[in-house]
Amino acid sequence: MAAGGDHGSPDSYRSPLASRYASPEMCFVFSDRYKFRTWRQLWLWLAEAEQTLGLPITDEQIQEMKSNLENIDFKMAAEEEKRLRHDVMAHVHTFGHCCPKAAGIIHLGATSCYVGDNTDLIILRNALDLLLPKLARVISRLADFAKERASLPTLGFTHFQPAQLTTVGKRCCLWIQDLCMDLQNLKRVRDDLRFRGVKGTTGTQASFLQLFEGDDHKVEQLDKMVTEKAGFKRAFIITGQTYTRKVDIEVLSVLASLGASVHKICTDIRLLANLKEMEEPFEKQQIGSSAMPYKRNPMRSERCCSLARHLMTLVMDPLQTASVQWFERTLDDSANRRICLAEAFLTADTILNTLQNISEGLVVYPKVIERRIRQELPFMATENIIMAMVKAGGSRQDCHEKIRVLSQQAASVVKQEGGDNDLIERIQVDAYFSPIHSQLDHLLDPSSFTGRASQQVQRFLEEEVYPLLKPYESVMKVKAELCL
């Protein structure tokens, strides 16, 4: 049975990233139509530049190519590739079939990587351009969430054990800070992308030097003109047959890092959902379990974690691919890159769409948070109580021993009897502590235990987050809708 299948058929496997999760716009960027249309555009740009620099290419040939950029006979191309065992030459023939007058000058002087690699770089750039505003929107939604809850005390956790208090907004800023680093890295790697350009079979530009009869300047002009037509500021000066596969490492490393950030955020949300302090959106008709109707599973956060793990592992592909590119190139890269580049971007696209949807509907339960604080705060307040007693004339050592005994009794009630923490009640009825009984409410005010959390939130948002989001103001209103 021949390899390949009808990918629109229910009898043929289709990647869930495309069929179930990723956005239509990201799927289109990695589609065959987008790819092969870009090949034709690159052939047109090459012909236009070659004509401008004096090669015998007519206006009629150029116009014929322009008129057929979208006229792609995919069936013919597939048949040609089956016959020739070469995808680029299959599309040269297919393009030439609908451009008979231009057929002889299509791909003039070029090698397969002229269309293959340059198209990949265009796709990487455009895919990054799709991700950047999506990530900015996630940051914006979380920034709104953090600002609104900047002063809401909550129990902090280290080692997932109760620690000092923080605020809900401050905790959210930990998430935002990681995503801001990801946004900066995505922008950097996007701006650092260079075009492969017009380089020939081993990167020496020998074929173009021959076409222009040894004119170095025209060869350099050709490279520059096509690079500018493709919208790049610069091209690699040095290439082998391909652009260095280190570029793929750079791009997928940034995406993998984004995956790590999203995994951490969504894990926190899942843990908070278990504590009943916070939940992701839950639709009115949504079913959490087929057997347990009360369940409210954090399905979206779980999906993000599941896909983020996949995204983090994909960076190993370009690392290994770059390491086995012998001399000017081997074909070890080809099949692998067809999979890992598309999957990385479709996965990143999915987790950003999902995280935006989550961040637009996060639900906080202040009463649950308050109750958990009441359970733990008495123990945390013991040092403040000791200091207040010393100020009232008591002995630190005597007070410490009193607190120690009462704390152990209260802990026994919590752990052995399943009761509430009654340390404060014990202190309130103990005559030894009568000098500070009137101060206990103040000493137990949760806001006095959150330090500068709310001020940190305000400063972080104003100095770091809002300036970073400013270039994306025009796209901030787009909502994230999930079908599944």
Rank of each mutant, 00 (worst) to 15 (best):
L271C: 11
K199A: 09
V429W: 03
Q285N: 12
I249P: 05
K470W: 14
C173D: 02
G116I: 12
V219T: 10
R196P: 03
L258W: 09
S207C: 14
P133C: 15
L135V: 11
D191Y: 15
Y365H: 07
S23E: 15
V262Q: 04
V92K: 02
G214L: 13
N71K: 08
Q51Y: 07
Q458A: 13
T227A: 06
R372T: 04
S306L: 01
S31I: 00
S12E: 15
A235G: 11
V198N: 14
Q51V: 05
S447N: 15
E481I: 11
S261M: 01
V457G: 05
F74Q: 06
T321V: 08
I424F: 05
D32L: 12
F433A: 04
E417P: 01
T204R: 00
Q456R: 05
S289I: 05
E70H: 08
K246C: 06
C399N: 10
F379I: 05
Q63H: 05
E425S: 12
R37P: 00
P435H: 11
R137A: 11
F212S: 04
N384T: 12
I106L: 10
Q164Y: 04
A308L: 02
L211V: 13
L468R: 11
C340L: 11
M387A: 08
H217Q: 07
Q458P: 06
R296S: 12
L135K: 13
M76D: 09
C305W: 01
S9M: 13
E50D: 06
A47C: 05
L142P: 01
I176W: 02
S151T: 11
P467M: 13
A322I: 15
L271V: 06
E464D: 15
W39A: 14
R188K: 12
A381C: 04
Q205M: 04
G8M: 12
K477L: 13
C340E: 00
E81T: 04
A102P: 04
Q241T: 03
G96D: 09
Q210P: 13
E48I: 14
Y432Q: 10
N68F: 05
D182F: 03
T201E: 00
A102K: 00
T267Q: 13
W326R: 03
I351D: 03
C305Y: 02
Q184V: 08
G169T: 06
G418F: 07
V475A: 15
R245L: 01
K66E: 02
M387L: 10
L55A: 02
S412G: 14
D87L: 11
F74W: 09
C98Q: 11
R194N: 02
D445M: 10
H437E: 06
G96A: 09
N126K: 07
N353W: 07
D445H: 10
F282S: 14
L46I: 14
I427W: 00
A146G: 03
R396Y: 04
R329G: 03
K284L: 07
K187I: 15
K134I: 03
C173M: 07
I373M: 13
A480G: 12
D349M: 07
V363D: 10
R37D: 09
Y13G: 13
I385K: 02
S207T: 15
E228R: 11
I57Y: 07
E220A: 09
G419Q: 09
F433D: 08
N185Q: 07
R303Y: 03
A77K: 05
V475C: 10
K101M: 13
L272T: 07
R234K: 07
E462V: 07
H442G: 10
G240E: 00
H437Y: 13
E70S: 14
M299E: 04
